[in-house]
């Protein structure tokens, strides 16, 4: 799989540009990546830990929900909190030994963890059904989705896109998360996190258990990743290992720096910009093949990332004073 963002069949015609179904779907992906990158923002922007394993946590959240529901027959709604707990447990297992490492070692250790998870998901066929993936975990969601749809129809909008309920729920969760994370960031707890980001030793000398805060930050980010994992699973209606490649984390970082560091609302802006540009590019009438257009999209993403890091490392909406990259 060379284009993990290829969420739609290629070769959409220009008519799709005004198609509300298409843009609803794009909106859902922007929402999922917003949620995904909120976890990165908590880690990178507010705690100073460079988590490159977020795709792994997303995978654990999605897989544990899907396995519990589709294979163990657990109630869908019960599987959600349990999958969160499982992901937090993994966050702690990863964090306990590796959060003591230097920042660059931590980055490599977490990306290795995420890849190990993906390879295990690909090979542990009894549990994960390998590359075929898991289906049939979303019946409960479908009935909820239909009630939401009926409700909207009752309000007078008759041609509701089928994915619109998921769009609402995804962005509802995203906004709720941005709001609560911003609130929590303003508490003394959030202040300690920022102190740890600035200088761990200074925080420790003032009586703060820096390690515990980093662990909390990672565990929360992991659980946020799990939520993004559920939504991705529901959107696709299946869970396969290929959806959790390291590139997903990289794209999360692009969203993060586009929106700016140390700013939760910026993450949503970053995700919306990225997805609008990526999907809007489909409608350029270029005389080249679709593979080339797909490649072109990523070349642009890469150039944007290089340009941002070179000329605006605090991101589009980040504060220069709170810039955490340059130094």
């Amino acid at each position: 799989m060379t284009d993990p963002l290829a969420i739609f069949p290629l070769g959409l015609t220009f008519e799709a540009f005004t198609d509300i179904d298409f843009w609803t779907s794009v909106g859902i992906f922007a929402g999922i990546y917003t949620i995904f990158a909120l976890g990165l923002q908590l880690n990178v922007g507010f705690t100073g830990i460079q988590n490159f394993g977020q795709a792994g946590f997303m995978a654990i959240g999605a897989y544990s929900m899907a396995i519990l529901t589709a294979e163990e027959g657990m109630n869908f709604w019960l599987s959600l909190p349990i999958s969160i707990l499982i992901t937090i447990a993994f966050g702690l297992i990863v964090g306990l030994p590796s959060l003591r490492l230097r920042a660059d070692y931590f980055a490599i250790a977490t990306i290795a963890f995420a890849e190990a998870i993906r390879l295990i998901a690909l090979n542990a066929r009894d549990l994960t059904n390998g590359a075929q993936g898991i289906f049939g975990f979303d019946d409960s969601w479908d009935s909820i989705s239909e009630s939401i749809e009926d409700f909207i129809i009752d309000l007078g909008w008759t041609d509701v896109p089928g994915l619109f309920p998921l769009f609402l729920v995804t962005w509802g969760i995203a906004v709720l998360m941005m709001f609560s994370l911003t609130r929590v960031q303003g508490t003394p707890w959030g202040r300690v996190l920022r102190a740890v980001r600035e200088d761990e030793d200074a925080a420790r000398a003032l009586g703060k258990n820096a390690f515990s805060y980093k662990l909390q930050s990672l565990a929360i980010a992991a659980s946020i990743g799990a939520v993004a994992g559920w939504l991705l699973a529901i959107q696709l209606a299946f869970v396969v290992p290929d959806e959790f490649q390291p590139i997903v984390t990289f794209i999360g970082y692009v969203v993060l720096v586009l929106g700016g560091l140390a700013n939760y609302w910026g993450v949503a802006v970053g995700a919306i910009i990225l997805w609008t540009v990526l999907e809007g590019l489909r409608f350029l009438e270029l005389p080249i093949s679709e593979t080339k257009i797909a490649a072109l999209r990523f070349i642009i993403v890469g150039l944007v990332l290089i340009g941002l890091m070179a000329f605006r490392p605090q991101g589009v909406f980040g504060k220069r004073e709170e810039m955490v990259l340059g130094d």
Partner: peptide
């Protein structure tokens, strides 16, 4: 010196106070 550079001076100060229950999640 280990000033917490990207935090306001007042936050640097308030951070250090002991017994702040709000530091517990």
């Amino acid at each position: 010196t280990k000033a917490l550079a990207a935090m306001p001076v007042i936050d640097n100060m308030m951070l250090a106070a002991p017994d702040q229950p709000g530091e517990s999640l």
